[in-house]
Design a binder for these strands. Structure first.
Lengths: 327, 327
DNA sequence: GTGAAAGCGCTAACAG
DNA sequence: CTGTTAGCGCTTTCAC
């Protein structure tokens, strides 16, 4: 790769002029500009982002932290982020953290080192303190997950309310024995969806039965299937189950097929997220839709505002109950 | 963020010594080391990757290019890459290109600019020329996709042979009318799987019927569903279908459910990849398994060898026919 | 309009 | 063992 020096020499000008041609062409005589542009083309020169970043402290790169890429939930959000980012001349880098604090630190360092201009975090707040600390100095926005004390700007949905509605839907259908397949409560949404579940049951004077609640360790099909297996093993078992994630619900559905139970007659099931897959399984899954693309787009927008130094306001987006055939 | 100068001043040593403490602590007296380490802690100092990269031309970062994150096929590969990379002290950055040459260029520049030490590309060779050109100067490995002329090291499977086996499986089951749901042939695997399909039919003297072949524009459920819809609309329609990707197959399966066709009695179906979904749908999908995790791990291993300047050899990994309940 | 020179944060050769 | 210094590639005053 040619450097700016070589271009300068080739064009018979100073490096400063080359830099000007690239960044502020108006400040350069047409003729000089032409010479330089020719040299650039001739030498196949491309400015070094490294040198530039070191100097200007900006990289036009955005970091997106996510627990893992295998959950399709994130894919749609990423689309939203990407489209917005590109429109503003930014590019995004996806960072899979596996919810591992050590991994997070590495990516945090990238922003400290000016390798990235901002972060959109979808991680649960494992490093909550560090994240907040970081946000005092650098532009950071949370997406989906958020910190309750509102120190960090976020865009998410009202998980409690959404879960409440989902469970209420089950109750309205006549179910009195409602199970819950939940995920690790270190995810704020998991604990909030639990609250919504609790609220709905209480409101209708249904008792909370611990045996009907299963918290999975992982967020994948197997865990959902395993959870349903346990739930079905009860002598007195629920007639409907609310899973806090479609991935879990789909896994649960598989177990229902294996046990040859009629859905929704023998067991009703409702998921959460409305990932594409939820509408492809058989029978199509009733679920609570999150506006994933929009969440991504808005968080990107917010991040760009923060980068510009503007104040931003956190947002709760609308969710929507989508009734299909498992309830 | 404190700089190395501040640390040096605080510790009462030169910047060189600070640098030594960080990079080659053995070359420093224990006492000095202690002073410096204390200063580092005190000032909360972390070395700037930027400054270091500019100087050493290495970033310990690997770029992974992929068309899009929504295909679960990539998730498993990424796991493999990640585990290997971390073991070698590297971190990975995921770059979603949407198969857009312009997007690719941006990420290509990252390596030119020493922001990354190497690239694992899972993109179809849109920028084939540029990629090859780049690989002369920088460590690049292809994963899953590959260039036929073998100028670039790759790890993949024998798609033609795998497709051949899949279709043969269908034929052995007595099917004579076999449809194909294929993807855009700019993906090498798509054209190879077509060849395998062709080879199997020819071997058993079955005619290739253009009406039974549908090439999708996108790789998602809807496209698969749409493809199956078209296939079913024929007056003389196939009794079995081979889809070159599980995502497509799962979409096709949905259409079969909608039309209430018995699977596999009225329509047999076989997919490709063995993504987790394929075993969760109902009925579980027969498919050709790719060793995704291994593909990722090996390509990461290869890339690291390349970075060290070693010669590497491309590899074809083993696939495996997994017979479940759709055939 | 243009050039010279300083400096972003770091490492490595050289000298002591 | 440690310090001095040059320089990675770029942008941006400050002169001219």
């Amino acid at each position: 790769m040619a450097t700016i020096q070589e271009v300068a020499k080739y064009a018979g000008v100073s490096v400063a002029t080359v830099s000007r041609v690239i960044n502020t062409p108006d400040k350069v005589k047409k003729h000089t500009q032409f010479k330089v542009e020719n040299a650039i083309k001739e030498l196949n020169y491309e400015p070094s982002v490294l040198g530039r970043s070191l100097r200007t402290s900006q990289s036009k790169l955005l970091l997106v932290l996510l627990p893992n890429v295998s959950n399709p939930f994130y894919a749609k959000i990423i689309n939203g982020i990407q489209d917005k980012a590109i429109a503003f001349g930014y590019n995004i880098l996806l960072c899979e953290t596996d919810s591992d604090p050590d991994r997070e630190v590495i990516y945090f360092n990238m922003i400290k080192n000016k390798l990235a201009d901002g972060i959109i975090s979808m991680d649960p707040t494992v490093n909550k303190k560090k994240l907040i600390e970081l946000s005092n100095e650098y532009p950071i926005v949370q997406c989906s997950e958020y910190t309750k004390d509102k120190t960090l700007p976020f865009v998410t949905i009202d998980s409690k309310q959404a879960a409440y509605q989902a469970v209420k839907h089950l109750i309205k259908l006549g179910h009195k024995k409602i199970g819950l397949i939940n995920f690790d409560k270190k995810f704020l949404y998991a604990s909030e969806r639990y609250s919504g579940y609790e609220k709905a049951l209480k409101e209708f004077n249904l008792e909370i039965t611990d045996d009907w609640i299963y918290n999975t360790k992982h967020l994948n099909f197997e865990s959902g299937q395993q959870a349903m297996r346990v739930l079905l093993d009860q002598i007195d078992r629920p007639s409907a189950v609310f899973a806090v994630s479609d991935v879990l619900a789909v896994g649960a559905l598989k177990e229902l097929h294996i046990k040859q139970l009629g859905v929704p007659e023998e067991m009703a099931l409702i998921g959460f997220d409305n990932i594409e897959f939820s509408n492809v399984v058989y029978p199509p899954l009733t679920t609570v839709a999150q506006p994933m693309y929009e969440m991504g787009a808005i968080s990107a927008q917010m991040l760009m505002s923060k980068i510009k130094g503007e104040e931003v306001e956190s947002r709760f987006l609308e969710h929507q109950l989508i009734i299909r055939e498992t309830t």
